[in-house]
Design a protein around this nucleic acid. Structure first.
Lengths: 258, 258
DNA sequence: CCTAGGGTTCTTGTATGCAAGTATTTATGT
DNA sequence: ACATAAATACTTGCATACAAGAACCCTAGG
Protein backbone atom coordinates (compact mmCIF):
# COMPACT_ATOMS: atom_id res chain seq x y z
CA UNK A 1 0.00 0.00 0.00
CA UNK A 2 1.56 3.19 -1.13
CA UNK A 3 -0.25 5.32 1.41
CA UNK A 4 0.52 4.51 5.01
CA UNK A 5 3.11 1.76 4.80
CA UNK A 6 1.91 0.69 8.23
CA UNK A 7 4.97 -1.42 8.80
CA UNK A 8 4.84 -4.09 11.40
CA UNK A 9 2.08 -5.88 9.56
CA UNK A 10 2.83 -7.36 6.20
CA UNK A 11 0.96 -5.98 3.21
CA UNK A 12 -0.42 -9.35 2.26
CA UNK A 13 -1.86 -9.70 5.73
CA UNK A 14 -3.58 -6.33 5.50
CA UNK A 15 -5.07 -7.18 2.14
CA UNK A 16 -6.29 -10.49 3.47
CA UNK A 17 -7.98 -8.92 6.48
CA UNK A 18 -9.61 -6.26 4.38
CA UNK A 19 -11.14 -8.62 1.85
CA UNK A 20 -11.90 -11.13 4.56
CA UNK A 21 -14.03 -8.78 6.61
CA UNK A 22 -15.62 -7.34 3.49
CA UNK A 23 -16.79 -10.81 2.54
CA UNK A 24 -17.93 -11.78 6.02
CA UNK A 25 -20.03 -8.67 6.53
CA UNK A 26 -21.40 -8.97 3.01
CA UNK A 27 -19.91 -5.72 1.80
CA UNK A 28 -18.72 -7.91 -1.02
CA UNK A 29 -21.84 -9.74 -2.13
CA UNK A 30 -21.90 -13.50 -2.55
CA UNK A 31 -21.31 -14.60 -6.15
CA UNK A 32 -19.88 -11.20 -6.97
CA UNK A 33 -17.02 -11.33 -9.38
CA UNK A 34 -13.67 -10.04 -8.21
CA UNK A 35 -10.50 -9.87 -10.22
CA UNK A 36 -6.94 -9.42 -9.13
CA UNK A 37 -6.56 -6.44 -11.42
CA UNK A 38 -9.60 -4.75 -9.90
CA UNK A 39 -8.26 -5.23 -6.40
CA UNK A 40 -4.86 -3.98 -7.51
CA UNK A 41 -6.36 -0.72 -8.71
CA UNK A 42 -8.61 -0.43 -5.70
CA UNK A 43 -5.97 -1.02 -3.06
CA UNK A 44 -2.80 0.29 -4.71
CA UNK A 45 -0.88 -2.91 -4.15
CA UNK A 46 0.79 -5.23 -6.59
CA UNK A 47 -0.69 -8.52 -7.60
CA UNK A 48 1.56 -10.58 -5.36
CA UNK A 49 -0.02 -9.81 -1.98
CA UNK A 50 -3.44 -9.80 -3.62
CA UNK A 51 -2.89 -13.29 -4.91
CA UNK A 52 -1.60 -14.41 -1.52
CA UNK A 53 -4.75 -13.11 0.11
CA UNK A 54 -7.02 -14.71 -2.47
CA UNK A 55 -5.38 -18.07 -2.04
CA UNK A 56 -5.93 -17.89 1.70
CA UNK A 57 -9.53 -16.84 1.21
CA UNK A 58 -10.01 -19.71 -1.17
CA UNK A 59 -8.88 -22.15 1.46
CA UNK A 60 -11.24 -20.46 3.90
CA UNK A 61 -14.03 -21.22 1.47
CA UNK A 62 -14.78 -17.53 1.01
CA UNK A 63 -13.83 -17.22 -2.65
CA UNK A 64 -13.97 -19.55 -5.63
CA UNK A 65 -11.11 -19.48 -8.11
CA UNK A 66 -11.64 -20.74 -11.63
CA UNK A 67 -8.27 -20.63 -13.37
CA UNK A 68 -8.27 -18.39 -16.41
CA UNK A 69 -11.98 -17.84 -15.93
CA UNK A 70 -12.41 -15.67 -12.91
CA UNK A 71 -12.63 -15.41 -9.16
CA UNK A 72 -15.90 -14.99 -7.28
CA UNK A 73 -16.99 -14.34 -3.77
CA UNK A 74 -18.23 -17.73 -2.64
CA UNK A 75 -22.00 -17.90 -2.51
CA UNK A 76 -23.52 -19.20 0.69
CA UNK A 77 -23.34 -22.94 0.57
CA UNK A 78 -25.68 -25.08 2.59
CA UNK A 79 -23.23 -27.90 2.96
CA UNK A 80 -20.36 -25.64 3.92
CA UNK A 81 -22.56 -23.94 6.49
CA UNK A 82 -23.61 -27.27 7.92
CA UNK A 83 -20.00 -28.38 8.16
CA UNK A 84 -19.06 -25.13 9.84
CA UNK A 85 -21.84 -25.53 12.34
CA UNK A 86 -20.84 -29.08 13.22
CA UNK A 87 -17.23 -28.02 13.49
CA UNK A 88 -17.95 -25.16 15.78
CA UNK A 89 -20.27 -27.02 18.09
CA UNK A 90 -17.97 -30.04 18.33
CA UNK A 91 -14.85 -28.04 19.04
CA UNK A 92 -16.35 -25.53 21.41
CA UNK A 93 -17.89 -28.35 23.40
CA UNK A 94 -14.52 -30.04 23.63
CA UNK A 95 -12.95 -26.77 24.70
CA UNK A 96 -15.52 -26.23 27.44
CA UNK A 97 -15.12 -29.76 28.74
CA UNK A 98 -11.36 -29.55 28.72
CA UNK A 99 -11.43 -26.14 30.39
CA UNK A 100 -13.53 -27.64 33.17
CA UNK A 101 -10.86 -30.27 33.71
CA UNK A 102 -7.91 -27.92 33.79
CA UNK A 103 -9.19 -24.67 35.25
CA UNK A 104 -7.26 -23.04 38.07
CA UNK A 105 -8.66 -20.63 40.62
CA UNK A 106 -7.17 -17.77 38.62
CA UNK A 107 -8.97 -19.00 35.55
CA UNK A 108 -12.26 -19.01 37.39
CA UNK A 109 -11.75 -15.44 38.55
CA UNK A 110 -10.85 -14.41 35.04
CA UNK A 111 -14.03 -15.94 33.61
CA UNK A 112 -16.22 -14.38 36.28
CA UNK A 113 -14.68 -11.02 35.53
CA UNK A 114 -15.45 -11.54 31.85
CA UNK A 115 -19.06 -12.27 32.73
CA UNK A 116 -19.21 -9.10 34.82
CA UNK A 117 -17.89 -7.09 31.89
CA UNK A 118 -20.45 -8.61 29.57
CA UNK A 119 -23.24 -7.82 31.97
CA UNK A 120 -22.10 -4.24 32.17
CA UNK A 121 -21.95 -3.82 28.41
CA UNK A 122 -25.29 -5.56 27.96
CA UNK A 123 -26.94 -2.69 29.83
CA UNK A 124 -26.13 -0.23 27.08
CA UNK A 125 -25.84 -2.53 24.07
CA UNK A 126 -29.10 -4.42 24.25
CA UNK A 127 -29.14 -5.75 20.69
CA UNK A 128 -26.57 -6.79 18.15
CA UNK A 129 -25.93 -4.05 15.60
CA UNK A 130 -26.96 -4.75 12.05
CA UNK A 131 -23.43 -5.38 10.83
CA UNK A 132 -23.10 -7.86 13.70
CA UNK A 133 -19.34 -7.49 13.93
CA UNK A 134 -18.86 -4.17 15.59
CA UNK A 135 -19.65 -3.01 19.06
CA UNK A 136 -18.16 -3.87 22.40
CA UNK A 137 -20.18 -6.99 23.07
CA UNK A 138 -18.99 -8.64 19.91
CA UNK A 139 -15.41 -8.19 21.03
CA UNK A 140 -16.23 -9.39 24.54
CA UNK A 141 -17.92 -12.45 23.14
CA UNK A 142 -14.92 -13.30 21.00
CA UNK A 143 -12.64 -12.79 23.97
CA UNK A 144 -14.75 -15.05 26.15
CA UNK A 145 -14.48 -17.97 23.82
CA UNK A 146 -10.79 -17.30 23.38
CA UNK A 147 -10.32 -17.29 27.14
CA UNK A 148 -11.89 -20.72 27.34
CA UNK A 149 -9.48 -22.01 24.72
CA UNK A 150 -6.50 -20.71 26.61
CA UNK A 151 -7.74 -22.22 29.85
CA UNK A 152 -8.21 -25.52 28.04
CA UNK A 153 -4.68 -25.12 26.68
CA UNK A 154 -6.17 -25.47 23.22
CA UNK A 155 -5.29 -22.12 21.71
CA UNK A 156 -4.33 -24.00 18.58
CA UNK A 157 -8.03 -24.46 17.88
CA UNK A 158 -8.50 -20.74 17.45
CA UNK A 159 -7.85 -20.62 13.73
CA UNK A 160 -9.89 -23.76 13.09
CA UNK A 161 -12.93 -22.54 14.97
CA UNK A 162 -12.46 -19.10 13.47
CA UNK A 163 -12.48 -20.35 9.92
CA UNK A 164 -15.69 -22.24 10.65
CA UNK A 165 -17.32 -19.28 12.36
CA UNK A 166 -17.01 -16.96 9.41
CA UNK A 167 -19.47 -19.03 7.42
CA UNK A 168 -21.98 -18.86 10.23
CA UNK A 169 -21.40 -15.15 10.63
CA UNK A 170 -22.17 -14.52 7.01
CA UNK A 171 -25.51 -16.19 7.51
CA UNK A 172 -26.11 -14.22 10.68
CA UNK A 173 -25.30 -10.93 8.96
CA UNK A 174 -27.68 -11.77 6.16
CA UNK A 175 -30.34 -12.61 8.72
CA UNK A 176 -30.06 -9.39 10.64
CA UNK A 177 -31.42 -7.52 7.67
CA UNK A 178 -34.62 -9.57 7.81
CA UNK A 179 -35.22 -10.35 11.44
CA UNK A 180 -35.82 -8.50 14.61
CA UNK A 181 -32.76 -7.24 16.43
CA UNK A 182 -31.00 -10.02 18.25
CA UNK A 183 -30.97 -9.53 22.04
CA UNK A 184 -27.69 -10.20 23.78
CA UNK A 185 -29.03 -10.56 27.30
CA UNK A 186 -29.71 -14.28 27.00
CA UNK A 187 -26.22 -14.82 25.67
CA UNK A 188 -24.75 -13.51 28.88
CA UNK A 189 -26.90 -15.90 30.86
CA UNK A 190 -25.72 -18.79 28.74
CA UNK A 191 -22.14 -17.71 29.19
CA UNK A 192 -22.76 -17.65 32.91
CA UNK A 193 -23.98 -21.22 32.86
CA UNK A 194 -20.83 -22.25 31.01
CA UNK A 195 -18.59 -20.47 33.46
CA UNK A 196 -20.27 -22.06 36.46
CA UNK A 197 -19.97 -25.50 34.91
CA UNK A 198 -16.30 -24.88 34.23
CA UNK A 199 -15.77 -23.50 37.71
CA UNK A 200 -17.33 -26.58 39.27
CA UNK A 201 -14.92 -28.74 37.32
CA UNK A 202 -17.66 -30.76 35.65
CA UNK A 203 -16.66 -31.46 32.04
CA UNK A 204 -19.96 -33.07 31.12
CA UNK A 205 -21.91 -30.09 32.42
CA UNK A 206 -19.62 -27.66 30.63
CA UNK A 207 -20.00 -29.66 27.44
CA UNK A 208 -23.78 -29.55 27.71
CA UNK A 209 -23.90 -25.86 28.59
CA UNK A 210 -21.80 -25.04 25.56
CA UNK A 211 -23.89 -27.27 23.34
CA UNK A 212 -27.04 -25.42 24.34
CA UNK A 213 -25.33 -22.09 23.88
CA UNK A 214 -24.04 -22.74 20.38
CA UNK A 215 -27.22 -24.49 19.28
CA UNK A 216 -29.12 -21.38 20.22
CA UNK A 217 -27.15 -19.07 18.00
CA UNK A 218 -27.67 -21.25 14.94
CA UNK A 219 -29.37 -19.01 12.46
CA UNK A 220 -32.44 -20.25 10.70
CA UNK A 221 -30.84 -21.28 7.48
CA UNK A 222 -33.92 -22.48 5.64
CA UNK A 223 -35.67 -19.19 6.18
CA UNK A 224 -32.80 -17.37 4.55
CA UNK A 225 -32.63 -19.79 1.65
CA UNK A 226 -36.24 -19.11 0.75
CA UNK A 227 -35.98 -15.35 1.26
CA UNK A 228 -32.71 -14.84 -0.54
CA UNK A 229 -31.98 -17.72 -2.90
CA UNK A 230 -29.72 -15.40 -4.88
CA UNK A 231 -27.18 -15.51 -2.07
CA UNK A 232 -26.76 -19.24 -2.64
CA UNK A 233 -26.26 -19.28 -6.41
CA UNK A 234 -23.32 -18.75 -8.64
CA UNK A 235 -24.18 -16.60 -11.67
CA UNK A 236 -23.42 -19.28 -14.19
CA UNK A 237 -22.65 -22.91 -14.04
CA UNK A 238 -18.93 -23.32 -14.09
CA UNK A 239 -16.94 -26.44 -13.53
CA UNK A 240 -15.32 -27.11 -10.23
CA UNK A 241 -12.99 -24.52 -8.81
CA UNK A 242 -9.41 -25.50 -8.32
CA UNK A 243 -9.05 -25.60 -4.59
CA UNK A 244 -11.21 -28.35 -3.26
CA UNK A 245 -9.17 -31.53 -3.25
CA UNK A 246 -6.83 -30.26 -0.59
CA UNK A 247 -4.96 -32.18 2.07
CA UNK A 248 -3.32 -34.68 -0.22
CA UNK A 249 -2.34 -38.12 0.88
CA UNK A 250 0.13 -38.38 -1.93
CA UNK A 251 2.78 -41.01 -1.83
CA UNK A 252 5.16 -39.10 -4.08
CA UNK A 253 8.67 -38.53 -2.94
CA UNK A 254 11.06 -35.68 -3.40
CA UNK A 255 12.53 -36.22 -6.81
CA UNK A 256 15.21 -33.73 -7.66
CA UNK A 257 15.54 -34.01 -11.40
CA UNK A 258 18.30 -31.57 -12.08
CA UNK B 1 8.39 -27.93 -13.46
CA UNK B 2 10.38 -27.84 -16.65
CA UNK B 3 10.38 -31.60 -17.08
CA UNK B 4 6.98 -33.20 -17.48
CA UNK B 5 4.56 -30.30 -17.49
CA UNK B 6 1.97 -32.71 -16.13
CA UNK B 7 -0.84 -30.36 -17.01
CA UNK B 8 -4.15 -30.80 -15.31
CA UNK B 9 -2.61 -30.18 -11.92
CA UNK B 10 -1.13 -26.78 -11.19
CA UNK B 11 2.57 -26.59 -10.48
CA UNK B 12 2.02 -24.95 -7.12
CA UNK B 13 -0.21 -27.83 -6.13
CA UNK B 14 2.43 -30.37 -7.07
CA UNK B 15 5.07 -28.52 -5.11
CA UNK B 16 2.77 -28.32 -2.13
CA UNK B 17 2.03 -32.04 -2.15
CA UNK B 18 5.67 -32.93 -2.53
CA UNK B 19 6.89 -30.86 0.39
CA UNK B 20 3.80 -31.74 2.40
CA UNK B 21 4.37 -35.47 2.25
CA UNK B 22 8.09 -35.02 2.76
CA UNK B 23 7.39 -33.21 6.01
CA UNK B 24 4.71 -35.61 7.20
CA UNK B 25 6.80 -38.70 6.68
CA UNK B 26 9.81 -36.96 8.21
CA UNK B 27 11.91 -37.08 5.06
CA UNK B 28 12.37 -33.43 5.85
CA UNK B 29 13.44 -33.41 9.47
CA UNK B 30 11.74 -31.18 12.03
CA UNK B 31 13.62 -27.94 12.63
CA UNK B 32 15.49 -28.39 9.39
CA UNK B 33 16.14 -25.19 7.55
CA UNK B 34 14.65 -24.84 4.10
CA UNK B 35 14.97 -21.87 1.80
CA UNK B 36 13.03 -20.90 -1.26
CA UNK B 37 16.21 -20.73 -3.30
CA UNK B 38 17.17 -24.26 -2.27
CA UNK B 39 13.78 -25.62 -3.26
CA UNK B 40 13.95 -23.72 -6.55
CA UNK B 41 17.19 -25.44 -7.45
CA UNK B 42 15.97 -28.78 -6.23
CA UNK B 43 12.65 -28.80 -8.06
CA UNK B 44 13.33 -26.69 -11.15
CA UNK B 45 10.46 -24.34 -10.50
CA UNK B 46 10.39 -20.61 -10.02
CA UNK B 47 9.94 -19.02 -6.63
CA UNK B 48 6.28 -18.22 -7.14
CA UNK B 49 4.78 -21.69 -6.75
CA UNK B 50 7.36 -22.46 -4.08
CA UNK B 51 6.22 -19.49 -2.09
CA UNK B 52 2.60 -20.43 -2.58
CA UNK B 53 3.29 -23.91 -1.25
CA UNK B 54 5.25 -22.60 1.72
CA UNK B 55 2.46 -20.25 2.68
CA UNK B 56 -0.02 -23.10 2.65
CA UNK B 57 2.31 -25.26 4.68
CA UNK B 58 2.71 -22.45 7.13
CA UNK B 59 -1.05 -22.32 7.66
CA UNK B 60 -0.99 -26.08 8.10
CA UNK B 61 1.51 -25.56 10.90
CA UNK B 62 4.12 -27.61 9.07
CA UNK B 63 6.67 -24.86 8.48
CA UNK B 64 7.68 -21.75 10.38
CA UNK B 65 8.47 -18.60 8.41
CA UNK B 66 10.60 -15.89 9.97
CA UNK B 67 10.64 -13.00 7.53
CA UNK B 68 14.12 -12.11 6.34
CA UNK B 69 15.52 -14.75 8.70
CA UNK B 70 14.61 -18.09 7.29
CA UNK B 71 12.04 -20.85 6.95
CA UNK B 72 12.14 -24.06 8.95
CA UNK B 73 10.29 -27.31 9.02
CA UNK B 74 8.09 -26.95 12.08
CA UNK B 75 9.38 -28.97 15.01
CA UNK B 76 6.88 -31.21 16.70
CA UNK B 77 4.86 -29.07 19.05
CA UNK B 78 3.15 -30.55 22.06
CA UNK B 79 0.38 -27.99 22.06
CA UNK B 80 -0.25 -28.29 18.34
CA UNK B 81 -0.40 -32.05 18.64
CA UNK B 82 -2.83 -31.83 21.52
CA UNK B 83 -5.04 -29.46 19.54
CA UNK B 84 -4.91 -31.76 16.55
CA UNK B 85 -5.88 -34.70 18.68
CA UNK B 86 -8.84 -32.88 20.21
CA UNK B 87 -9.90 -31.68 16.79
CA UNK B 88 -9.79 -35.09 15.25
CA UNK B 89 -11.60 -36.87 18.02
CA UNK B 90 -14.30 -34.22 18.30
CA UNK B 91 -15.00 -34.05 14.59
CA UNK B 92 -14.83 -37.76 13.85
CA UNK B 93 -17.22 -38.41 16.70
CA UNK B 94 -19.62 -35.86 15.29
CA UNK B 95 -19.31 -37.44 11.87
CA UNK B 96 -20.03 -40.91 13.21
CA UNK B 97 -23.06 -39.70 15.13
CA UNK B 98 -24.42 -37.79 12.18
CA UNK B 99 -23.80 -40.71 9.87
CA UNK B 100 -25.85 -42.88 12.19
CA UNK B 101 -28.72 -40.42 11.89
CA UNK B 102 -28.68 -40.14 8.12
CA UNK B 103 -27.53 -43.50 6.82
CA UNK B 104 -29.52 -45.19 4.10
CA UNK B 105 -29.61 -48.88 3.35
CA UNK B 106 -27.16 -48.28 0.50
CA UNK B 107 -24.81 -46.58 2.91
CA UNK B 108 -24.91 -49.54 5.23
CA UNK B 109 -24.06 -51.90 2.40
CA UNK B 110 -21.23 -49.65 1.33
CA UNK B 111 -19.74 -49.61 4.81
CA UNK B 112 -20.03 -53.35 5.23
CA UNK B 113 -18.28 -53.81 1.92
CA UNK B 114 -15.50 -51.52 3.12
CA UNK B 115 -15.13 -53.66 6.24
CA UNK B 116 -14.93 -56.78 4.09
CA UNK B 117 -12.18 -55.20 2.02
CA UNK B 118 -10.27 -54.24 5.12
CA UNK B 119 -10.54 -57.74 6.49
CA UNK B 120 -9.22 -59.14 3.24
CA UNK B 121 -6.23 -56.81 3.17
CA UNK B 122 -5.52 -57.38 6.85
CA UNK B 123 -4.75 -60.99 6.05
CA UNK B 124 -1.68 -60.05 4.04
CA UNK B 125 -0.79 -56.70 5.59
CA UNK B 126 -0.66 -57.58 9.24
CA UNK B 127 1.31 -54.55 10.43
CA UNK B 128 1.66 -50.95 9.40
CA UNK B 129 4.78 -50.37 7.30
CA UNK B 130 7.46 -48.20 8.83
CA UNK B 131 6.65 -45.18 6.72
CA UNK B 132 3.06 -45.56 7.88
CA UNK B 133 1.62 -43.88 4.81
CA UNK B 134 1.94 -46.48 2.13
CA UNK B 135 0.28 -49.83 1.68
CA UNK B 136 -3.25 -50.78 0.86
CA UNK B 137 -4.64 -50.67 4.36
CA UNK B 138 -3.63 -47.05 4.82
CA UNK B 139 -5.63 -46.13 1.73
CA UNK B 140 -8.57 -48.24 2.87
CA UNK B 141 -8.50 -46.60 6.27
CA UNK B 142 -8.54 -43.14 4.74
CA UNK B 143 -11.38 -44.15 2.49
CA UNK B 144 -13.40 -45.55 5.36
CA UNK B 145 -13.32 -42.30 7.28
CA UNK B 146 -14.07 -40.40 4.11
CA UNK B 147 -17.06 -42.63 3.46
CA UNK B 148 -18.45 -41.81 6.86
CA UNK B 149 -18.11 -38.10 6.13
CA UNK B 150 -20.01 -38.45 2.90
CA UNK B 151 -22.75 -40.44 4.55
CA UNK B 152 -22.99 -37.77 7.23
CA UNK B 153 -23.15 -35.18 4.44
CA UNK B 154 -20.16 -33.51 6.06
CA UNK B 155 -17.56 -33.80 3.33
CA UNK B 156 -16.61 -30.23 4.12
CA UNK B 157 -14.89 -31.51 7.23
CA UNK B 158 -12.37 -33.44 5.18
CA UNK B 159 -9.79 -30.69 4.89
CA UNK B 160 -10.19 -29.71 8.54
CA UNK B 161 -9.74 -33.22 9.84
CA UNK B 162 -6.96 -33.78 7.35
CA UNK B 163 -4.96 -30.79 8.48
CA UNK B 164 -5.27 -32.01 12.05
CA UNK B 165 -4.31 -35.54 11.20
CA UNK B 166 -0.98 -34.66 9.66
CA UNK B 167 0.34 -33.57 13.03
CA UNK B 168 -0.67 -36.86 14.56
CA UNK B 169 0.80 -38.74 11.65
CA UNK B 170 4.14 -37.12 12.09
CA UNK B 171 4.17 -38.35 15.65
CA UNK B 172 3.11 -41.80 14.54
CA UNK B 173 5.82 -41.96 11.89
CA UNK B 174 8.42 -40.96 14.46
CA UNK B 175 7.11 -43.63 16.79
CA UNK B 176 7.26 -46.44 14.30
CA UNK B 177 11.03 -46.21 14.32
CA UNK B 178 11.09 -46.94 18.05
CA UNK B 179 8.19 -49.24 18.71
CA UNK B 180 7.03 -52.65 17.70
CA UNK B 181 5.13 -52.90 14.43
CA UNK B 182 1.59 -51.70 14.82
CA UNK B 183 -0.99 -54.43 14.17
CA UNK B 184 -3.94 -53.45 12.03
CA UNK B 185 -6.24 -56.32 12.97
CA UNK B 186 -7.74 -54.53 15.98
CA UNK B 187 -8.39 -51.48 13.83
CA UNK B 188 -10.69 -53.50 11.61
CA UNK B 189 -12.60 -54.70 14.65
CA UNK B 190 -13.02 -51.13 15.84
CA UNK B 191 -14.19 -50.09 12.42
CA UNK B 192 -16.69 -52.91 12.53
CA UNK B 193 -18.08 -51.64 15.81
CA UNK B 194 -18.50 -48.20 14.29
CA UNK B 195 -20.26 -49.57 11.25
CA UNK B 196 -22.69 -51.60 13.30
CA UNK B 197 -23.51 -48.60 15.48
CA UNK B 198 -24.09 -46.52 12.37
CA UNK B 199 -26.15 -49.27 10.79
CA UNK B 200 -28.37 -49.51 13.84
CA UNK B 201 -29.00 -45.78 13.64
CA UNK B 202 -27.77 -45.08 17.13
CA UNK B 203 -25.84 -41.78 17.14
CA UNK B 204 -24.72 -42.12 20.74
CA UNK B 205 -23.32 -45.58 20.14
CA UNK B 206 -21.57 -44.45 16.96
CA UNK B 207 -20.12 -41.50 18.82
CA UNK B 208 -18.78 -43.76 21.56
CA UNK B 209 -17.42 -46.35 19.15
CA UNK B 210 -15.54 -43.66 17.26
CA UNK B 211 -14.26 -42.15 20.48
CA UNK B 212 -12.75 -45.45 21.53
CA UNK B 213 -11.30 -45.97 18.09
CA UNK B 214 -9.54 -42.65 17.85
CA UNK B 215 -8.41 -42.69 21.46
CA UNK B 216 -6.70 -45.97 20.77
CA UNK B 217 -4.53 -44.69 17.97
CA UNK B 218 -3.22 -41.80 20.02
CA UNK B 219 0.52 -42.25 19.98
CA UNK B 220 2.39 -42.10 23.22
CA UNK B 221 3.58 -38.55 22.98
CA UNK B 222 5.51 -38.37 26.23
CA UNK B 223 7.59 -41.37 25.28
CA UNK B 224 8.65 -39.69 22.09
CA UNK B 225 9.45 -36.42 23.80
CA UNK B 226 11.90 -38.14 26.12
CA UNK B 227 13.43 -40.30 23.41
CA UNK B 228 13.78 -37.62 20.77
CA UNK B 229 13.67 -34.17 22.35
CA UNK B 230 15.50 -32.84 19.30
CA UNK B 231 12.35 -33.29 17.24
CA UNK B 232 10.60 -30.74 19.45
CA UNK B 233 13.19 -27.97 19.44
CA UNK B 234 13.99 -25.18 17.06
CA UNK B 235 17.77 -24.77 16.58
CA UNK B 236 17.91 -21.30 17.99
CA UNK B 237 15.51 -19.13 19.82
CA UNK B 238 13.86 -16.88 17.32
CA UNK B 239 10.98 -14.53 17.86
CA UNK B 240 7.53 -15.49 16.81
CA UNK B 241 6.97 -16.50 13.22
CA UNK B 242 4.66 -14.40 11.17
CA UNK B 243 1.68 -16.64 10.66
CA UNK B 244 0.09 -17.24 14.00
CA UNK B 245 -2.48 -14.53 14.61
CA UNK B 246 -4.66 -15.67 11.76
CA UNK B 247 -8.42 -15.40 11.40
CA UNK B 248 -8.67 -11.71 12.03
CA UNK B 249 -11.65 -10.06 13.56
CA UNK B 250 -10.66 -6.74 12.13
CA UNK B 251 -13.22 -4.00 11.87
CA UNK B 252 -11.48 -2.28 8.98
CA UNK B 253 -13.45 -1.46 5.91
CA UNK B 254 -12.55 -1.39 2.28
CA UNK B 255 -10.90 1.98 1.80
CA UNK B 256 -9.97 2.64 -1.78
CA UNK B 257 -7.47 5.49 -1.52
CA UNK B 258 -6.75 6.16 -5.12
C1' DC C 1 -32.19 -13.45 -39.18
C1' DC C 2 -28.98 -16.78 -37.80
C1' DT C 3 -24.56 -19.07 -37.51
C1' DA C 4 -19.66 -19.60 -37.67
C1' DG C 5 -15.21 -17.76 -37.40
C1' DG C 6 -11.42 -14.76 -35.98
C1' DG C 7 -9.52 -11.44 -33.26
C1' DT C 8 -9.42 -8.72 -29.07
C1' DT C 9 -9.55 -8.46 -24.25
C1' DC C 10 -9.95 -10.33 -20.14
C1' DT C 11 -8.64 -13.87 -16.71
C1' DT C 12 -5.20 -16.35 -13.67
C1' DG C 13 -0.51 -18.98 -13.58
C1' DT C 14 4.42 -18.51 -13.72
C1' DA C 15 9.08 -16.44 -13.89
C1' DT C 16 12.10 -12.92 -12.58
C1' DG C 17 14.02 -8.59 -10.85
C1' DC C 18 14.37 -5.36 -7.08
C1' DA C 19 14.12 -3.90 -2.21
C1' DA C 20 14.71 -4.32 2.69
C1' DG C 21 16.28 -6.66 6.53
C1' DT C 22 19.19 -10.27 9.06
C1' DA C 23 23.17 -13.06 10.08
C1' DT C 24 27.75 -14.11 9.17
C1' DT C 25 32.26 -13.09 8.13
C1' DT C 26 36.10 -10.37 7.58
C1' DA C 27 38.95 -6.63 8.38
C1' DT C 28 40.66 -3.18 11.53
C1' DG C 29 42.01 -0.93 15.41
C1' DT C 30 43.27 -1.28 20.29
C1' DA D 1 44.35 -11.91 21.40
C1' DC D 2 40.13 -9.55 21.55
C1' DA D 3 36.47 -6.47 20.63
C1' DT D 4 34.21 -3.66 17.31
C1' DA D 5 32.62 -2.28 12.96
C1' DA D 6 32.07 -2.48 8.16
C1' DA D 7 31.19 -5.32 4.28
C1' DT D 8 29.25 -9.32 2.22
C1' DA D 9 26.22 -13.04 1.49
C1' DC D 10 22.24 -14.66 2.58
C1' DT D 11 16.96 -14.50 3.74
C1' DT D 12 11.97 -13.36 2.50
C1' DG D 13 8.48 -9.57 0.84
C1' DC D 14 6.93 -6.99 -3.05
C1' DA D 15 6.50 -5.46 -7.89
C1' DT D 16 6.27 -6.49 -12.62
C1' DA D 17 6.69 -8.76 -17.13
C1' DC D 18 5.40 -12.65 -19.80
C1' DA D 19 2.61 -16.73 -21.07
C1' DA D 20 -1.48 -19.58 -21.77
C1' DG D 21 -6.11 -20.09 -21.83
C1' DA D 22 -11.19 -18.62 -21.75
C1' DA D 23 -14.88 -15.52 -22.80
C1' DC D 24 -16.65 -11.98 -25.47
C1' DC D 25 -17.66 -9.22 -29.48
C1' DC D 26 -17.86 -8.14 -33.92
C1' DT D 27 -17.87 -9.33 -38.60
C1' DA D 28 -18.60 -12.08 -42.66
C1' DG D 29 -21.18 -15.43 -44.92
C1' DG D 30 -25.13 -18.31 -45.49
Amino acid sequence: MSSEPSRNVAVGEQVYRLIHSAIVDLTLAPAQRISEHMLVKEMNVSRTPIREAIQRLERDGLVLVFPQRGTFVAPLDRQAIRSAYVTRIALERAVAAEAASRRSTEDIARLRQAIADQREVAKSEVYYPVDARSGRFFALNEGFHRDLMEIADLAGLGPVVGSAKVHLERVRVAHLAYEDPYPIGPLVEEHTAIVEAVASGDPAAADEAMREHIARVLPRLDLLMTHRPDLFELPRELGNPVGFARQPQTTDRMTADK
